[in-house]
């Protein structure tokens, strides 16, 4: 199928993009296009204009300081995978991104696009929630920061206002003793997961002090699991208990890849893998 007609605007800079966005409710930001163009090609959406933010150079920067890694919205998945500093400071990102789609898609797909699109089965939104990254939004009223935990509101729904653009994502790094985990279950390499988990454990003298779990592919957004984390702080891993607790935490939702039962089961399995790997 071919896209419906729309016009195209190449934004010169951020202010320009915001300006156009503000004046047209049906305008849509075009980042890497790897999620947007399939929906257009299938005529699932009908925007008036695509605002291409691909030429705004400030959105392509990766900045690193002692405690943060700041990823410009327009950094492609490949750019991030090939960045030495990222690979040193936050090596798990490389591991995560190598499971996102395939080389040609990663060459175009952007970090900001993935976070902003908020596909519930996508890896990056879950990771952002896990480390409670700061999501930086620019709009006509200036810049604001939304924590990742507050960012995802529902199925493909985020805190981005209609006149706002996601400009960067700020990840905390060098967090003492925090060990990170990522795994997912897919039927084919590079597919969206049937269920996936990013998790972290902070230990003191081999005692777990803090556990965080965020699941993807399981519900309408990245799913945190506070009750399960609490359970794990007090108890050894036990498949049935974890599965039951997870069901209290998460409203598992079936999709074309798997049923809600399957997702609950896989989530419990992934927690088991994490406890084994990180302990």
């Amino acid at each position: 199928m071919k896209s419906p007609a729309f016009s195209y605007y190449q934004a010169k800079d951020l202010a320009d993009a915001i300006n156009v966005k503000k004046t047209d409710d049906d305008a849509v930001i075009l980042a890497g296009g790897q999620s947007l163009l399939p929906t257009l090609n299938m005529r699932l959406s009908n925007p008036s204009v695509l605002i291409d933010i691909g030429n705004i150079s400030e959105l392509k920067e990766i900045k690193v300081d002692d405690s943060n890694l700041i990823m410009g919205a327009m950094c492609s998945h490949s750019q991030i995978m090939n960045n030495k500093e990222v690979n040193e400071k936050l090596p798990i990102l490389n591991k995560i991104l190598s499971q996102v789609a395939h080389p040609a898609v990663r060459n175009k797909g952007t970090h900001g696009g993935s976070i902003a699109y908020g596909d519930p089965a996508a890896e990056l939104p879950a990771f952002a929630v896990l480390v409670n990254a700061e999501i930086i939004l620019s709009g006509s009223d200036g810049e604001r920061i939304v924590s990742a935990k507050e960012f995802y509101k529902g199925l493909f729904e985020t805190a981005i206002n209609s006149d706002e653009i996601l400009t960067s994502v700020k990840y905390p790094i060098n967090r003492n003793g925090m060990k990170l985990f990522f795994d997912e279950v897919t039927r084919r390499h590079g597919d969206y997961a049937m269920a996936g988990l990013v998790g972290s454990i902070k230990q003191n003298n081999k005692i777990n002090e803090e556990i965080n779990l965020v699941f993807f592919g399981t519900g309408d957004r990245p799913n945190e699991a506070p009750k399960t984390c609490e359970y794990l702080l007090k108890n050894e891993y036990n498949y049935s208990d974890i599965k039951n607790t997870l069901k209290n935490d998460i409203d598992f939702a079936s999709d074309i890849s798997s049923s809600s039962d399957m997702k609950a089961h896989l989530s419990a399995i992934l927690v088991g893998r994490m406890m084994k790997e990180l302990n």
């Binding site: 399939p38 299938m42 039927r187 084919r188 390499h189 590079g190 597919d191 074309i256 890849s257």
Partner: peptide, 16 residues
Amino acid sequence: LTNGNMADYLVPMAYE
């Protein structure tokens, strides 16, 4: 037909 597209109708790919 709910999976009539190439992302949802799975065909064998090289890795597997």
